[in-house]
Simulated assay, not measured.
Amino acid sequence: MKMKLIAVAVGAALSVPAVAMADVSIYGRAHVSVDYLDDGARYSETNLSSNSSRLGFKGDHEINPDLKAFFQIEQQINFTTGSSDGGTSFATRDTFVGLGGNFGAIQVGRFDSPFKVARGPFNLFGDQVGDMNNLARVTAGRLDERYDNTIQYTTPDFSGFNVKVAYSMYRGQSLNITDTTANNEDSDAFSTSLNYLGGPLEASLAYEKVEEDTLRGEADSIRAAVAYKIVDNFKLVGFYQTTDFDGVSTTTSAQRDAGTFNVYGLGGEFAIAKNTALKATWMTNDSDADDSDATMWVVGIEHKLDKAVRVYANYAVVDNDDNVAYSPWMQSRTANPQNQSVVNGVNEAAGEKAAGFTVGLRYDF
Rank of each mutant, 00 (worst) to 15 (best):
A182I: 03
V10Y: 08
N134L: 03
V237T: 10
S25C: 07
R223S: 13
Y240S: 08
V248A: 15
R142G: 14
D131G: 05
R223L: 13
Y240G: 00
N275T: 13
S292N: 09
N51D: 04
E269C: 00
T284R: 12
Y264A: 01
P328E: 01
L99S: 11
K235R: 14
G217P: 14
G40W: 08
D66P: 04
D38G: 04
S89A: 12
A9N: 08
V343I: 15
L143T: 02
Q76I: 05
S341K: 01
S168N: 13
Q76C: 01
D179H: 11
E145V: 15
Q338P: 04
F161G: 00
Q107W: 05
Q338A: 15
D322M: 08
A350T: 12
V324Y: 07
M3Q: 14
N176P: 02
G100H: 09
A105R: 10
R110K: 14
G86D: 02
F158D: 00
V165N: 05
G265W: 05
S83L: 12
T139F: 12
G101P: 00
D23S: 15
G100M: 06
V343E: 03
N102L: 12
F261T: 09
V346Y: 11
Y264D: 00
H61P: 02
R146M: 03
R333Q: 07
N339H: 11
A20Y: 11
M3Y: 10
R119K: 15
V210D: 13
D39W: 08
A140N: 14
T180A: 12
Y326S: 04
T95Q: 08
G351P: 08
Y264G: 06
E74M: 04
V231T: 10
P337G: 08
D35S: 00
P65I: 05
T180K: 13
